[in-house]
Design a protein around this nucleic acid. Structure first.
Lengths: 118, 118
DNA sequence: TCGGTGCACCACTCCTCGGTAGTACAATGG
DNA sequence: CCATTGTACTACCGAGGAGTGGTGCACCGA
């Protein structure tokens, strides 16, 4: 409803861009980073301590998110502070969660109908 | 805003599920298939003719989408008709398109400010 | 029986992910 | 002023998974 002007034959380059965007978000480590940044901006060290993993790996994932324009980077002396730049990712996550919940509900209904005993 | 009951420390299994969901959608071929199915349900043959690619590949991608609960499968005589089962994917695409558009706008503004002549 | 449609298995290729090593920059102490 | 420390980024490498194409098979209708 926000931008309904997407023609049904989606132009090819746009397809690639959309796929890339989904791929960027479709990583557990990056989702954890975004979830941590949701509360407040944080430096790389803080994020390493929050989500676990090596500093290089976290830095790399942050670079991916920054290149995709999802997070912003700000130098603070010797540290770098990252913050959410595109809050729409949380709306995306909530939509996905809704889909997962619906799917779980359907699955549960099927189990109930089939009979819980196997 | 739909399901705000996602705690900030997202439980680990949910992170994996969300990432998997995004990954399923984050493929150009599957996006094309979903875009084709947006108009009306179609059989594998029709989809092969619409999006291009081998029949096996299309069938496999449809299997992935079906397993993820995004499309539904209905036997119709000798053919199988696929249809959208979770319309929220289009909302996802529109959100992503909005983010891409915003990013392009920002980039254009930067170019305008810096001076077009590099 | 024959033709068509869709699926399952297989091997190949490519991309992504994580780890390691090395480098640049700022702050601090002598 | 120079050396040291801490922080963050980049480059390279190996392992693993996902995507792609090919072959063969099962199913359904004519």
């Amino acid at each position: 409803m926000v931008c309904m002007d997407i023609p049904h034959p989606i132009p090819e380059p746009l397809v690639g861009l959309i796929a890339q965007r989904f791929r960027v978000i479709g990583d557990p480590m990056r989702i954890r980073l975004l979830d941590t940044l949701r509360n407040h901006p944080a430096t790389v060290g803080e994020l390493v301590d929050a989500v676990g993993g090596s500093q290089q790996n976290v830095s790399k994932h942050l670079g991916v998110l920054h290149q995709a324009g999802i997070v912003s980077r700000t130098k603070e002396g010797t540290a770098v502070r990252y913050a959410i730049a595109d809050a729409s990712v949380f709306a995306l996550c909530e939509l996905v969660c809704g889909g997962i919940r619906q799917q779980a509900k359907d699955l549960d209904a099927i189990l109930q109908a089939t009979g819980t005993g196997r």
